[in-house]
Design a protein around this nucleic acid. Structure first.
Lengths: 343, 343
DNA sequence: CTGAAAGCGCTTACAG
DNA sequence: CTGAAAGCGCTTACAG
């Protein structure tokens, strides 16, 4: 129980109290918003704290209050710029309330489930799951432990889990209508993973609307939300006897791969030979070669909604799960043919 | 001090001890590698723990041991795919030893310094700074508090701070030689921020080597490590009366912007009219429109070195700062003219 | 407004 | 190998 060899022990409330000539509990109060301390006492304490270089020990505080100000974030596809954006927005917005992200990356192959124990051990205030292959068991257990959970763009059958999603049905429906109005003949959908509920929702809305419009067959493939996966699947689609001339990809990131393969390997003219539409509207979608037509899904709004839900669940633990949908819009660019007489 | 309303209190060692019929300290030992517990006792305990759904409380453990198994990561440019890769590699490799990342994002404008208190409050085992605008004061204070610090790709005058870097001098030198052999006439360097030591090192080596080769004037601009910043500066460079025909960008990410502007806005043929070389060799560098010639800087190796240093500093707190350089190589692709008679 | 004291859930000498 | 006990640095009723 000796101090670590090198570094001298960090100052504690007791050290500050001694220097300021008050009790240790007074020091604690000086750092507790709303606690009753005389202003003069408080100043004396803060001065002493500054002098000693005192910083409250969050671990001790957490032990006493059961609130860590840490939010666990489980995420796989950090290479997808959309999710890099989500992480950044989340981090910055949590910081505004003094909270931080504890990162749990999961490999896209789903092998490394974020160790259950870990997220439970750290007594996180909430758990956010997004773009992750994390098992549902993780969610179940955390929920049992009373940790508020919200999933961003991830479906779930579990009743207690809150969900924030993009405009999946509406977007897919509008995209189907837009492509159909553009006079395309053969349609394909490149989804994420086979298990992805979000991808399935988009697929169903896309295929469903096309069917209503009289299109019988829509090719469906899965790019696993990865660039490489989408590239492989695009190769297969474009190698068919009658390849599609319109492809809707479940993410911009995959759409980039589709465009890449179409132009470079198949020498197709976009959008003359092939129209490609993505989903997300990441910054890169408007850049150079891509010039991608897509449906926007503002990361900032998704994050706002997620934080809002978390806060309400922390405030009222008994609260039931919430579901929110964020708005987006069809962003017209050059990668998809436009309807002849634009409505 | 009552249990939180909704969720029942999480089971503790005492709960497990009661169920297993042993003392609380025995339970603790069962979870401490190398502690002396009879195998039969241990099994009894683990069984009881499973039954109760017990998970050790890291906050309490940290308070007792002063080790949190949390590593703070300060980072700004999450949108740069190279750093997204660094984050992922770091997260996965730390997980192998049961550690996790506590994320401190800083806005690229440098406004939001990661709150000093925060990183100190969480009693992190180490602090890693990379691609960040975080002030040096942060580093100084953490160092004073005895927190091991390593900077990835960030220079520092502070004596106690360990640094892991890419092959800056060598890469810039080779790139200068390669472009010069390619017979270019007017050279430009697009660096990161003006304050970036890493950028300065690359600039000096690049300009220095060109000077040795007889090139007097090398244009120097700063893209601030952002896509937009690089685009703006590229516009300026290419609008000059005598624009450069060879540009070395301090990151692939900025090189993409340069290529984008050159091709789309100035209708330049790459590499016929303009050669562009980047730095990092991110996955996107080999994709479609870019086909970027660059110098590799393996994120995995940088991360390995950083973790290695952290571990050694934790093991021997008195240890002095270390500096490591990771190897890379010139990756030949289509964005830069090759020397006529390749050596 | 202030202090003494108990408690948060662990680890770790210290005896046995 | 095992248990009782002190201690890690906080918060928070409880008295005063």
């Amino acid at each position: 129980m000796r101090a670590k060899d090198g570094a001298k022990r960090a100052p504690t409330e007791s050290d500050v109290a001694r220097l300021a000539g008050v009790s240790q509990s007074a020091v604690s109060r000086a750092y507790t918003p709303g606690a009753s301390v005389a202003e003069s006492t408080r100043e004396k304490i803060l001065k002493a704290a500054r002098e000693l270089g005192y910083h409250p020990n969050m671990m001790a505080r957490t032990l006493a209050t059961n609130r860590s100000n840490i939010v666990a974030l489980a995420i796989s596809y950090l290479d997808n710029p959309f999710y890099a954006q989500v992480v950044r927005e989340l981090s910055e917005k949590l910081r505004e309330t003094g909270r931080h992200i504890l990162l749990f990356t999961t490999s896209p192959d789903g092998k490394a489930d974020p160790a259950l124990e870990d997220v439970l051990s750290y007594k996180v205030d909430a758990l956010i799951l997004t773009a992750t292959t994390a098992s549902h068991e993780l969610a179940v257990q955390c929920q049992a432990a009373g940790v508020p959970i919200v999933q961003i763009n991830r479906e779930s059958k579990l009743p207690g889990i809150s969900i924030v999603r993009g405009p999946n049905e509406l977007a897919a429906t509008k995209i189907a209508e837009f492509l159909h109005a553009g006079g395309h003949l053969r349609y394909a959908f490149i989804g994420g993973t086979v298990e992805s509920g979000t991808s399935k929702v988009r697929e169903n809305a896309f295929v469903g609307r096309l069917r209503e419009l009289g299109v019988k067959d829509v090719l469906v493939a899965h790019g696993d939300y990865t660039f490489e996966g989408a590239a492989i699947v695009t190769r297969q689609l474009l190698s068919m006897a009658e390849p599609p001339d319109a492809i809707f990809c479940a993410s911009d990131y995959m759409a980039f791969a589709t465009l890449d393969v179409a132009k470079r390997e198949f020498n197709l003219k976009v959008p003359d030979d092939l129209s490609v539409i993505g989903f997300d509207n990441v910054p890169a979608a408007s850049r150079f070669a891509w010039d991608l037509t897509t449906y926007s899904q503002p990361a900032g709004l998704l994050v706002d909604a997620a934080i809002d839900i978390i806060d309400s669940m922390i405030a009222r633990p008994g609260r039931r799960a919430q579901r929110r949908e964020v708005q987006g819009e069809l962003i017209l660019r050059g990668s998809a043919k436009r309807p002849p007489a634009s409505a």
